[in-house]
């Protein structure tokens, strides 16, 4: 009988263990509390895309998306350095967010209806308006995407890219062959080795990828933009407090730019008499409390990371090697699409 009892006990322990494991995952905890308790923000970023999220040879992360991680950490924890970066591939990223492995996904991810409605994600805003394009070799003499009939095209898997590509060629009634790679490195290598006639991905990435080729001058980015790719930070559904924080950190950076509050002048701006600036920096009103933070949240984000314009220019704009034009990403006051609701 003892033999049986031992086995039964073992079975019970195993079952209890299973129950404990899955039970923990199903418990609804507030992300803000988790982050504060941990003292660190766990941020999902790209495995390596210059300008958006990439680590240098010393393991220091930088990029537009990385700066968003820093801004959130500064607003929530008071220190932009308290971030653990988790590099995710296109295939892993949503699972990492859904399973709670990361708190927020800042990984040049396109906001679409299917991701909002069937992946259990919410996009907090658009930090980069992008569109898919093509890169070809200059020597091929191609001037437009419509001349790519019969071409072989290198693609990285697990993106909306494959779908847009198929749509583009279907609309224009052209034939093509997609060559799909798991990693961008290999897709780019195959393109450089002349296995493909063109390389396609979001235009912002094309500029970055072009710099990774052995001789950037041999390649050009075609003017065709074949899709809308609004990229932005995503969080899990069902935690509206955390969603609101991520969304308003983004809006705070935009509002700061609009109000000419920069990393350099933010301390002087604390004495500003402009009511919007006072509200942004927490000198007037009690807006931080509603977010579950203190009133200096936006001040810290701007102080430690800079406003949206500074973040853009530093990582992908004139201050970077990519030299991407503000274009659609300019403020609404300057002909762009970036528009933030007011803080009041």
């Amino acid at each position: 009988m003892t033999h049986f009892a031992r086995r039964a006990a073992l079975a019970a322990v195993v079952l209890a263990g299973l129950a404990g494991l899955t039970g923990a995952a199903s418990a609804q905890t507030k992300t803000l509390d988790t982050v504060k308790q941990r003292g660190q923000l766990v941020c999902g970023v790209n495995v390596g895309l210059p300008g958006f999220g990439a680590a240098d040879d010393k393991g220091v992360w930088s990029g537009l998306d990385v700066d968003y991680c820093k801004a959130i950490a500064a607003a929530v924890l008071g220190d932009a350095g308290k971030v653990r970066y988790v590099p995710t591939t296109t295939k892993e990223r949503f699972t990492a967010l859904q399973s709670g492995e990361i708190d927020v996904l800042n990984r040049n991810t396109t906001w679409t209806i299917s991701r909002d409605s069937s992946l259990g994600l919410s996009f907090a805003g658009v930090n980069y308006y992008d569109g898919q394009g093509f890169m070809v070799k200059k020597a091929a003499g191609v001037k437009s995407g419509k001349e790519l009939g019969g071409a072989t095209i290198c693609v990285q898997t697990g993106t909306t890219t494959e779908l847009n590509l198929a749509d583009f060629f279907r609309i224009n009634n052209l034939q093509y062959k997609p060559l799909v790679f798991e990693k961008m490195d290999e897709a780019l290598r195959a393109y450089q080795a002349n296995r493909c006639d063109a390389f396609t991905t979001d235009a912002s990435q094309l500029y970055a990828v072009r710099l990774l080729t052995s001789n950037p001058d041999e390649h050009i980015v075609l003017p065709d933009i074949i899709s809308k790719e609004p990229l932005g930070p995503a969080v899990r559904q069902g935690d509206s407090q955390w969603f609101t924080i991520v969304r308003w950190v983004h809006f705070a950076l935009l509002n700061a730019e609009e109000l000419n509050v920069t990393q350099a002048n933010v301390d002087e701006m604390l004495n500003s008499t402009h009511p919007d600036v006072k509200r942004l920096l927490g000198k007037e009103g009690d807006f931080g409390k509603g977010l579950g933070l203190d009133n200096d949240w936006a001040y810290r984000a701007v102080k430690q990371v800079g406003n949206y314009g500074e973040v853009f220019e530093r990582n992908v704009g004139s201050g970077s090697r990519l030299k991407i034009d503000r274009g659609l990403n300019g403020l609404w006051t300057k002909g762009g699409l970036q528009y933030a609701p007011p803080i009041r």
């Binding site: 296109t90 295939k91 949503f94 699972t95 299917s114 991701r115 069937s118 992946l119 290198c154 898997t157 697990g158 993106t159 909306t160 494959e162 779908l163 060559l179 799909v180 790679f181 798991e182 990693k183 290999e186 897709a187 195959a190 296995r195």
Partner: peptide, 23 residues
Amino acid sequence: AVAIGYPDFVSVTGTILNQTGQA
């Protein structure tokens, strides 16, 4: 095969996974 761009089963299901999100 996924590593060298041959459209095998894993490569194709990878694309399906990403488009549908039904991991």
